[in-house]
Amino acid sequence: TTFVALYDYESRTETDLSFKKGERLQIVNNTEGDWWLAHSLSTGQTGYIPSNYVAPS
């Protein structure tokens, strides 16, 4: 499932994924509650993102 970032997010830990508003993200795993494992289609990096910062594209 592809989502789009609603806001900028700066990672707080090394497992988080930083992203910019408008960036497209492929969700890898969304069974972890409020933090989803995502892959950035812009940077190619993978990490955890706050689910309330993204919406379906």
Results as ranks from 00 to 15, higher is better:
Thr1Glu: 10
Thr1Gly: 12
Thr2Tyr: 07
Thr2Trp: 08
Phe3Pro: 01
Phe3Gln: 01
Phe3Arg: 03
Phe3Thr: 02
Val4Trp: 08
Val4Leu: 05
Val4Gly: 01
Val4Asn: 03
Val4Ser: 01
Ala5Gly: 09
Leu6Asp: 06
Leu6Gln: 07
Leu6His: 03
Leu6Lys: 15
Leu6Ile: 02
Leu6Cys: 04
Tyr7Asp: 10
Tyr7Val: 09
Tyr7Ser: 09
Tyr7Ile: 15
Tyr7Lys: 12
Asp8Asn: 10
Asp8Thr: 05
Asp8Tyr: 03
Asp8Pro: 02
Asp8Gly: 06
Asp8Glu: 05
Tyr9Phe: 05
Tyr9Met: 02
Tyr9Gly: 01
Glu10Ala: 09
Glu10Ile: 15
Glu10Gly: 05
Glu10Lys: 08
Ser11Asp: 00
Ser11Gly: 12
Ser11Glu: 11
Arg12Asp: 03
Arg12Phe: 04
Thr13Ala: 06
Thr13Cys: 09
Thr13Ile: 15
Thr13Val: 10
Thr13Ser: 09
Glu14Gln: 11
Glu14Val: 08
Thr15Asp: 08
Thr15Lys: 14
Thr15Gly: 13
Thr15Ile: 03
Asp16Asn: 04
Asp16Val: 11
Asp16Met: 05
Asp16Thr: 14
Leu17Glu: 01
Leu17Cys: 08
Leu17Ala: 09
Lys20Tyr: 05
Lys21Phe: 03
Gly22Trp: 03
Gly22Arg: 02
Glu23Gly: 00
Glu23Asn: 02
Glu23His: 02
Glu23Thr: 04
Glu23Gln: 07
Arg24Ser: 14
Arg24Gly: 10
Leu25Phe: 13
Leu25Gly: 00
Leu25Val: 04
Gln26Phe: 03
Gln26Cys: 13
Gln26Lys: 15
Ile27Arg: 11
Ile27Trp: 00
Ile27Glu: 01
Ile27His: 05
Ile27Phe: 01
Val28Gly: 09
Val28Trp: 03
Asn29Ser: 15
Asn29Thr: 15
Asn29Met: 14
Asn29Asp: 15
Asn30Met: 10
Asn30Cys: 15
Asn30Trp: 09
Asn30Arg: 12
Asn30Asp: 02
Asn30Phe: 03
Thr31Arg: 13
Thr31Ile: 05
Thr31Tyr: 12
Glu32Trp: 08
Glu32Arg: 14
Glu32Ile: 12
Glu32Gln: 15
Glu32Cys: 15
Gly33Phe: 06
Gly33Ala: 08
Gly33Arg: 12
Gly33Lys: 10
Gly33Pro: 14
Asp34Ser: 06
Asp34Cys: 13
Asp34Trp: 05
Trp35Thr: 08
Trp35Val: 09
Trp35Phe: 12
Trp35Gly: 05
Trp36His: 06
Trp36Arg: 05
Trp36Tyr: 10
Leu37Glu: 12
Leu37Gln: 12
Leu37Ala: 03
Leu37Tyr: 11
Leu37Cys: 12
Leu37Val: 10
Leu37Trp: 14
Ala38Phe: 01
His39Gly: 05
His39Phe: 08
Ser40Ala: 07
Ser40Phe: 01
Ser40Glu: 01
Ser40Met: 03
Ser40Lys: 05
Ser40Tyr: 00
Ser40Asn: 12
Leu41Phe: 05
Leu41Trp: 08
Leu41Asn: 13
Leu41Ala: 11
Ser42Tyr: 05
Ser42Leu: 12
Thr43Gln: 07
Thr43Asp: 12
Gly44Ala: 09
Gly44Val: 01
Gly44Gln: 15
Gln45Asp: 07
Gln45Glu: 15
Gln45Ala: 13
Thr46Leu: 03
Thr46Ile: 08
Thr46Asn: 15
Thr46Gln: 11
Thr46Val: 10
Thr46Phe: 01
Gly47Phe: 00
Gly47Thr: 00
Gly47Met: 00
Gly47Cys: 00
Tyr48Arg: 14
Tyr48Ser: 03
Ile49Pro: 01
Ile49Ala: 01
Ile49Cys: 14
Pro50Glu: 01
Pro50Arg: 10
Pro50His: 11
Pro50Phe: 07
Pro50Trp: 06
Ser51Asn: 10
Ser51Asp: 01
Ser51Arg: 05
Ser51Phe: 15
Asn52Trp: 09
Asn52Tyr: 02
Asn52Gln: 07
Asn52Ser: 14
Asn52Arg: 14
Asn52Pro: 04
Asn52Met: 06
Tyr53Val: 08
Tyr53Leu: 13
Tyr53Glu: 00
Val54Cys: 07
Val54Thr: 04
Pro56Ala: 08
Pro56Glu: 04
Pro56Ile: 04
Pro56Tyr: 06
Pro56Ser: 12
Ser57Trp: 04
Ser57Cys: 15
